[in-house]
Design a protein around this nucleic acid. Structure first.
Ligand SMILES: [Mn+2]
Ligand SMILES: [Mn+2]
Ligand SMILES: [Zn+2]
Ligand SMILES: [Zn+2]
Lengths: 151, 151
DNA sequence: TGGATTTTTGCAACTTTGTTGCTTTTTTAA
DNA sequence: TTAAAAAAGCAACAAAGTTGCAAAAATCCA
């Protein structure tokens, strides 16, 4: 961290928001930063905890919705009613997400990861079913937790 | 529900609950029946609507939890924070669900179906990741909606 | 079948999560 | 620098989920 008013990263984040057609505000910068710092995905309540009292709950809801709309983040399905979000790294556009990667939920550290290099398989469906999108969620033990245990 | 008349189905449902080691109550019979009548999966609120004022909300929560624990139903992941449930038709045991099938969410009728004949693909993961379970959720247009449109 | 024992239910009170309308503040663009 | 537009904060509300406890029902056994 330099002593100057703006680090490079802050400038980058601001630029990135502008490129998506969004005005640059403290909460958007902060939430974007949280996603960038984070290896795993974040839920609403994760963000609330990490952001502390800095922002109103409502602002977080609205920011997440905006980021979803603009194709900045995507929602990751889960079976426990707690949706998590992660940055889109493909070129997702406003109104259209295009993700081919799968997600991994670690039962040990309870983090969810985007495995960007693992492409979703094509699924053979019964006659009449028209697929538009495939979500794959693998549960197990993640890389970090596996190697941590070994040593 | 406790009249003198018992249909075959009612007896079957009671037997089925007993086999799972559960006592037979009105709410469990009713909720079990709803799942059996239904082609698609049911959310908590679906059940609340269909059951009307017959049961307390809390009873529905507890019944769903019990059915999950006993391996009678399974939870289906979704990206919109509304978990749906469907009957297990494999031999799921208390404490252990074993499902190999995929799920299909129809964007037109908003129903979720178990495609019991479509087996989950095996996914090649990066080194260090240990998979234990694979959930596949395909979104698109279901068979019913496709054929309905054609005619 | 009756009645003690165990289990489940309903209720109330509460927490958490999510939504909406409105006012003030901040950001943007001229 | 200022006017217009957008976002944030606030409050009030609605929906979803949890917990403890007393009443009701189901099970068990003599
Ligand atoms: Mn992802
Ligand atoms: Mn299923
Ligand atoms: Zn892990
Ligand atoms: Zn359909």
């Amino acid at each position: 961290m330099s002593g100057s008013k703006h680090s490079n990263k802050t400038i980058e984040i601001g630029e990135s928001l502008k490129r998506k057609g969004l005005s640059v505000t403290d909460s958007r910068k902060k939430i974007m930063q949280l996603f960038m710092q984070q290896k795993g995905a974040l839920s609403h309540s994760d963000i609330e905890k990490k952001a502390g009292t800095a922002f109103d709950r409502v602002t977080i809801y609205r920011t997440l919705q905006t980021f979803l709309d603009k194709g900045i983040i995507h929602a990751i399905p889960s079976a426990d009613a707690s949706v998590r979000y992660a940055l889109c790294n493909d070129d997702c556009a406003p109104g259209h997400h295009e993700h081919q990667h799968i997600h991994f939920f670690c039962r040990q550290c309870h983090q969810t990861f985007c495995l960007d290099d693992i492409v979703t398989p094509s699924i053979g469906l019964p006659r009449g079913y028209q697929p538009q999108e495939v979500d794959v969620l693998v549960k197990g033990v993640c890389k970090n937790c596996t190697t941590a245990k070994k040593s």
